[in-house]
Amino acid sequence: MNLLKTHYHPEVKTLDNKSIFTRLATRSIVINGHSILLLYTERYEDYSLPGGGLDLDEDKIEGMMRELIEETGAKDIKNIQPFGVYEEYRPWYKPDYDVQHMISYCYTCDINENLGVSDLEPYEISNGMTAVWVNIHDALEHNKKTMATSTKKGMSIERETFLLHLIAKNL
Protein backbone atom coordinates (compact mmCIF):
# COMPACT_ATOMS: atom_id res chain seq x y z
CA MET A 1 0.00 0.00 0.00
CA ASN A 2 1.35 3.47 -0.91
CA LEU A 3 2.51 5.84 1.80
CA LEU A 4 0.32 8.95 1.58
CA LYS A 5 2.10 11.04 4.20
CA THR A 6 4.27 10.94 7.31
CA HIS A 7 3.20 13.60 9.81
CA TYR A 8 5.05 14.77 12.92
CA HIS A 9 2.99 16.47 15.63
CA PRO A 10 4.57 19.87 16.53
CA GLU A 11 5.44 18.58 20.02
CA VAL A 12 7.51 15.72 18.53
CA LYS A 13 10.76 17.54 17.74
CA THR A 14 12.94 14.44 17.47
CA LEU A 15 12.72 10.68 17.78
CA ASP A 16 16.27 10.41 19.13
CA ASN A 17 16.37 8.78 22.57
CA LYS A 18 12.57 8.49 22.64
CA SER A 19 10.60 5.40 23.55
CA ILE A 20 8.07 4.78 20.79
CA PHE A 21 4.79 2.86 20.94
CA THR A 22 3.49 1.71 17.53
CA ARG A 23 -0.27 1.42 17.02
CA LEU A 24 -1.76 -0.06 13.85
CA ALA A 25 -5.15 1.24 12.78
CA THR A 26 -7.54 1.24 9.84
CA ARG A 27 -9.73 3.94 8.27
CA SER A 28 -12.74 3.36 6.00
CA ILE A 29 -13.58 5.56 3.03
CA VAL A 30 -17.21 5.15 1.97
CA ILE A 31 -18.44 7.46 -0.81
CA ASN A 32 -21.95 7.87 -2.20
CA GLY A 33 -21.92 10.58 -4.90
CA HIS A 34 -20.43 13.66 -3.19
CA SER A 35 -21.42 12.38 0.25
CA ILE A 36 -19.02 10.52 2.49
CA LEU A 37 -19.72 8.48 5.61
CA LEU A 38 -17.96 10.19 8.50
CA LEU A 39 -18.07 10.42 12.26
CA TYR A 40 -18.85 13.80 13.74
CA THR A 41 -17.34 14.24 17.20
CA GLU A 42 -18.97 17.00 19.22
CA ARG A 43 -16.12 17.20 21.77
CA TYR A 44 -13.52 18.01 19.11
CA GLU A 45 -15.86 19.73 16.64
CA ASP A 46 -14.55 17.62 13.75
CA TYR A 47 -15.32 15.03 11.13
CA SER A 48 -13.27 11.85 10.86
CA LEU A 49 -13.23 8.65 8.88
CA PRO A 50 -14.62 5.59 10.65
CA GLY A 51 -11.80 3.49 11.99
CA GLY A 52 -9.57 2.68 14.89
CA GLY A 53 -6.91 0.46 16.34
CA LEU A 54 -6.36 -3.11 15.30
CA ASP A 55 -6.46 -5.83 17.92
CA LEU A 56 -3.28 -7.87 18.42
CA ASP A 57 -2.66 -10.06 15.32
CA GLU A 58 -5.96 -8.90 13.74
CA ASP A 59 -6.13 -8.96 9.94
CA LYS A 60 -6.25 -5.41 8.54
CA ILE A 61 -9.36 -6.00 6.39
CA GLU A 62 -11.20 -7.76 9.21
CA GLY A 63 -10.25 -4.93 11.59
CA MET A 64 -11.41 -2.30 9.09
CA MET A 65 -14.76 -4.05 8.72
CA ARG A 66 -15.14 -4.49 12.50
CA GLU A 67 -14.47 -0.80 13.18
CA LEU A 68 -16.78 0.33 10.36
CA ILE A 69 -19.62 -1.84 11.68
CA GLU A 70 -19.06 -0.83 15.32
CA GLU A 71 -18.87 2.90 14.65
CA THR A 72 -21.51 3.30 11.93
CA GLY A 73 -23.71 0.20 11.84
CA ALA A 74 -22.56 -0.40 8.23
CA LYS A 75 -24.08 -3.37 6.41
CA ASP A 76 -23.16 -5.26 3.24
CA ILE A 77 -19.51 -4.15 3.11
CA LYS A 78 -17.99 -5.01 -0.27
CA ASN A 79 -15.52 -3.90 -2.94
CA ILE A 80 -12.76 -3.22 -0.39
CA GLN A 81 -9.71 -1.64 -2.04
CA PRO A 82 -6.49 -0.22 -0.57
CA PHE A 83 -6.26 3.59 -0.64
CA GLY A 84 -2.99 4.25 1.18
CA VAL A 85 -1.16 4.55 4.48
CA TYR A 86 -1.00 7.63 6.71
CA GLU A 87 1.80 7.53 9.26
CA GLU A 88 2.07 9.90 12.20
CA TYR A 89 4.20 10.53 15.26
CA ARG A 90 2.47 12.24 18.16
CA PRO A 91 2.92 12.64 21.92
CA TRP A 92 1.90 9.63 23.99
CA TYR A 93 -0.21 10.47 27.03
CA LYS A 94 0.88 7.61 29.31
CA PRO A 95 4.19 7.47 31.20
CA ASP A 96 5.37 4.19 29.60
CA TYR A 97 6.29 5.77 26.23
CA ASP A 98 7.24 9.21 24.89
CA VAL A 99 5.81 9.00 21.37
CA GLN A 100 3.00 7.15 19.62
CA HIS A 101 3.73 6.00 16.08
CA MET A 102 0.29 5.57 14.49
CA ILE A 103 0.08 3.76 11.17
CA SER A 104 -3.39 4.06 9.58
CA TYR A 105 -4.22 1.70 6.71
CA CYS A 106 -6.96 3.33 4.63
CA TYR A 107 -9.39 1.39 2.46
CA THR A 108 -12.27 2.35 0.18
CA CYS A 109 -15.39 0.22 0.18
CA ASP A 110 -19.08 0.19 -0.66
CA ILE A 111 -21.88 -0.39 1.84
CA ASN A 112 -25.65 -0.31 2.01
CA GLU A 113 -26.39 3.41 2.50
CA ASN A 114 -28.99 2.57 5.17
CA LEU A 115 -27.00 2.18 8.36
CA GLY A 116 -27.80 -0.19 11.18
CA VAL A 117 -27.24 0.44 14.88
CA SER A 118 -23.72 1.41 15.93
CA ASP A 119 -21.96 -0.13 18.93
CA LEU A 120 -19.80 2.75 20.16
CA GLU A 121 -17.29 2.57 23.01
CA PRO A 122 -18.28 4.51 26.18
CA TYR A 123 -15.65 7.22 25.49
CA GLU A 124 -16.98 7.62 21.92
CA ILE A 125 -20.50 8.13 23.29
CA SER A 126 -19.31 10.65 25.89
CA ASN A 127 -17.37 12.52 23.17
CA GLY A 128 -20.63 12.87 21.21
CA MET A 129 -19.59 10.75 18.24
CA THR A 130 -22.24 10.07 15.59
CA ALA A 131 -22.12 8.56 12.10
CA VAL A 132 -23.35 10.90 9.37
CA TRP A 133 -23.52 11.09 5.59
CA VAL A 134 -22.17 14.54 4.73
CA ASN A 135 -21.00 16.39 1.63
CA ILE A 136 -17.25 15.84 1.55
CA HIS A 137 -16.51 19.47 0.66
CA ASP A 138 -18.63 20.72 3.58
CA ALA A 139 -16.83 18.35 5.97
CA LEU A 140 -13.44 19.49 4.66
CA GLU A 141 -14.30 23.16 5.11
CA HIS A 142 -15.69 22.47 8.59
CA ASN A 143 -12.45 20.73 9.65
CA LYS A 144 -10.33 23.55 8.22
CA LYS A 145 -12.35 26.07 10.22
CA THR A 146 -11.99 23.95 13.38
CA MET A 147 -8.22 23.76 12.84
CA ALA A 148 -8.00 27.54 12.46
CA THR A 149 -10.34 28.64 15.25
CA SER A 150 -11.16 25.93 17.80
CA THR A 151 -9.43 25.36 21.11
CA LYS A 152 -11.14 21.95 21.33
CA LYS A 153 -9.49 20.29 18.32
CA GLY A 154 -8.03 16.82 18.82
CA MET A 155 -4.72 15.41 17.58
CA SER A 156 -6.30 13.44 14.73
CA ILE A 157 -7.74 16.44 12.85
CA GLU A 158 -4.53 16.96 10.83
CA ARG A 159 -4.73 13.39 9.55
CA GLU A 160 -8.45 13.51 8.89
CA THR A 161 -8.34 16.83 7.04
CA PHE A 162 -5.39 15.70 4.90
CA LEU A 163 -7.23 12.49 3.99
CA LEU A 164 -10.52 14.30 3.23
CA HIS A 165 -8.65 16.71 0.96
CA LEU A 166 -6.97 13.82 -0.88
CA ILE A 167 -10.27 11.91 -1.21
CA ALA A 168 -12.12 15.00 -2.50
CA LYS A 169 -9.36 15.62 -5.04
CA ASN A 170 -9.74 12.05 -6.33
CA LEU A 171 -13.54 12.22 -6.70
Rank of each mutant, 00 (worst) to 15 (best):
K5M: 07
T6H: 11
H7W: 11
Y8T: 03
Y8S: 03
H9I: 14
H9E: 15
P10Q: 08
E11I: 05
E11P: 01
E11H: 11
K13A: 11
T14K: 03
T14N: 05
L15A: 03
D16F: 15
K18N: 01
K18G: 03
K18C: 11
I20S: 05
T22K: 15
L24I: 05
L24G: 03
A25T: 09
T26C: 12
T26K: 01
R27K: 15
S28M: 05
I29M: 04
I31F: 14
N32R: 09
G33A: 07
H34C: 04
H34N: 15
H34L: 08
I36Q: 01
L39N: 13
R43P: 01
D46F: 04
Y47S: 03
P50Y: 10
G51D: 07
G53L: 14
D55C: 01
L56E: 07
L56C: 05
D59K: 11
K60G: 05
E67T: 11
E67C: 08
E70A: 15
E70K: 10
D76G: 09
I77W: 07
I77V: 15
I77C: 12
K78A: 14
K78D: 12
K78H: 12
N79E: 14
N79I: 01
I80E: 06
I80S: 02
F83M: 05
F83H: 06
F83D: 02
G84C: 08
G84P: 04
G84R: 03
E88Q: 13
E88N: 03
R90K: 06
R90Y: 10
P91Q: 11
P91F: 04
W92N: 13
W92F: 15
K94V: 02
P95V: 04
P95D: 12
D96A: 13
Y97C: 01
V99N: 00
Q100S: 13
Q100N: 12
M102H: 10
M102R: 02
M102K: 05
Y105M: 12
C109R: 02
D110I: 04
N112T: 09
N112Q: 10
E113N: 06
E113V: 14
N114E: 13
L115R: 00
G116V: 01
L120C: 11
E121G: 02
P122F: 03
P122N: 10
Y123A: 13
S126F: 06
S126Q: 09
M129D: 00
N135R: 09
N135T: 03
H137Q: 06
H137W: 12
D138N: 13
D138L: 14
A139V: 05
L140V: 12
E141D: 15
H142K: 07
H142I: 11
K145H: 11
K145Q: 09
T146P: 10
M147G: 03
M147F: 00
T149N: 11
S150I: 08
G154Q: 10
S156G: 04
I157T: 07
I157V: 13
I157E: 00
E158R: 06
E160M: 10
T161P: 06
F162Y: 13
L164R: 10
L164H: 08
L166V: 11
A168C: 07
K169H: 04
K169P: 00
N170E: 14
L171C: 13
L171M: 13
